[in-house]
Amino acid sequence: MKFHSFLFINFLIISGILSSCTKENPTPVTEGDSNDVILEFDNRVGAQKLVLGETLYQTGTGESFTVSTFNYFVSNVSLKKTDGSNIKFPDQYFLIRQADNNSWEPVLKNVPAGDYQEITFTIGVDSTKSVSPVGERKGVLDEGSYGDDGMYWSWNSGYIFLKLEGTSPAAPANGAGIRRFQMHVGGFGGMTSATINNLRTVTLPFPQNQLATVRKTVAPTIHVIANLQKIFSGKTTVKIADTPAIHMPAAAVPLANNYVHMFTVDHTHNE
């Protein structure tokens, strides 16, 4: 008896989740309404959850690695409605840090009610912000907030757009016998002369029948999966053995070209 009611409750919960994911007839849009949209960044390695620390993962070429740090900036988000118009969210910068689960689900505020079918965002911190005065660098752009997990290159005054660090048997051992690899991607295009620009923008249409329907009572979640395996193989193959330490914009170009292919929108929840 006990067992049965447990199953029944489970069934209720599961069907509840399923129905909310595929709400079919959202209430009509009322002009002037708005709500939050939650961007859920779900970092994975292939079909595995990303867990920092000991877990051994494999790149596409069979190099195994662990991940100690995985951070990236998301900015200049825009959402496209089914009528083709775009709603932009300028001057909002999010830093997704795998070590801090409070950073995984940034919120876009005051999104106008409507049906959205696509998201676009920049990976990194755009060049305008990268040369802005110190008074305009608040929150995740405040260099004084980073501590040991820095996201700023003081020697060229630029943000690190994406940082992946860990260990790998393919990396050379340091003095303490630890085989660390570090991949830091930055480069906003230069202050005065044109230099390497590793800013990349991704546009992700939502899967079929998966709209984000913002209503007065519905604050949708857009569930984005980032498959960090793609950093090694999105476009060209990057081997840890060849480039275990990347700290300069030019060397990081292949990584940026790879990680534009890292993101997919898996589904939306309209709750």
Partner: peptide, 27 residues
């Protein structure tokens, strides 16, 4: 010429491992 704004200069010596070797946050 790595830094283009005087306001950001102190971060470089503070965080440089062979200069002050700190983080701005700790300071």
């Amino acid at each position: 010429g790595g830094v283009g704004d005087l306001d950001f200069v102190p971060i470089a010596p503070i965080t440089n491992a062979v200069e002050l070797g700190e983080t701005t946050k700790n300071v």
